[in-house]
Amino acid sequence: MPSPAASASAPRVGALFAIGSMSCVQLGLAVSVGLSEQLGPTGVAWLRLVWAGLILLVVARPWRATFTRKAFWTCVALGAATAGMTVFFMCAVMLIPLGTASALEFLGPLGVAVARGTGRSRLWAIVAAAGVIALTEPWHGRADPIGILFALGAAACWGVYILLTQRAGDSVEGLNALAVSIPTAAVVASFTITPALFAKLDLTVLLAGLGLALLLPLVPFILELLSLRRLNTATFGTLMSLEPAFALVIGAAILHQIPTPLAVVGIALVITAGIGATRTGARS
């Protein structure tokens, strides 16, 4: 049984893991945009997942672990959700600003928080909807509708990913859950590429893909797994509320995507809704 001091520190440690994950994710996405112009968004997503899967297979060697049938298929399902989240979001950021895509994707964890929250959660859903409207400004038609659909697809996958990650982390030791889910994600993502991609994979591109795999998804997914072992899904969702803000800052600094004042208001509303819809506290 954990000591009271360890139980008290668990939320703080979990929060640090989550913040580190968000920083790596947004930085990795910003860097990936440049490579996407050469390989396409699905090609970059696939290359990152392949490298991450190979690294995890070598490091974790999941074939030595013992899985129950339920735990194994949970990890496989997690891999499918990971692939969808990675590919959809990479396609989205090629069509709409990083901050907008991140705020729309956040509707996934927000939905988890609302579903598991109290009766007041509907109020925060309305606030989030207002934020999305401010972000997309449908009356102007400026935001690419296909980009919005990709971001919403990533949001759905992220909501499923959060639930499955916690379940896998509870039932599988160490990195074995990721060592099954990430290679599975690479296999699923391979259905989104064409044979023409392989002609573009020279040494420079492969090394760039390896670096991106460490930055996204390998390190963030490990940090999220460690975070979800210390926090309940509501607390994790609260912390993820900050991700659009990270995306806004990194998008402006690296990609020179300066948001409109209304977009800033929209992101603030989504963040507020996420914080309001979730509860704090460590997992029992």
Rank of each mutant, 00 (worst) to 15 (best):
I133T: 15
T42H: 12
L107A: 03
V93Y: 13
P62I: 05
L56H: 11
A65I: 09
W63K: 07
G117R: 04
V93W: 09
W63M: 06
A103H: 10
V87Q: 06
G99C: 02
V132C: 13
E105R: 14
A115V: 10
G111L: 03
V93F: 06
G40E: 01
V59C: 03
F89C: 06
A128V: 05
A71G: 11
S32K: 12
A83I: 09
M85Q: 14
I55Y: 08
A130S: 15
S36W: 00
W73I: 01
F72C: 03
G53V: 01
A45L: 08
G40N: 13
R122K: 08
V33F: 06
S121I: 02
P109A: 09
L98N: 09
A60G: 00
I96D: 01
A65R: 05
A101G: 15
C75S: 08
W46D: 08
G131S: 08
A130L: 15
Q38G: 07
P138K: 09
G131I: 05
G99N: 00
R69F: 08
S102R: 04
A81Y: 13
M90W: 00
P109S: 05
E37F: 05
A77K: 07
V127N: 10
T42I: 02
G131V: 13
W124C: 04
P41W: 10
V127A: 01
L56N: 12
C91T: 12
A125H: 04
P109Q: 09
V93R: 13
S32I: 09
C91R: 15
G99F: 05
I133R: 13
F89T: 04
M85L: 14
G108L: 02
G84P: 03
P62H: 10
A60Y: 02
G111K: 04
P138W: 03
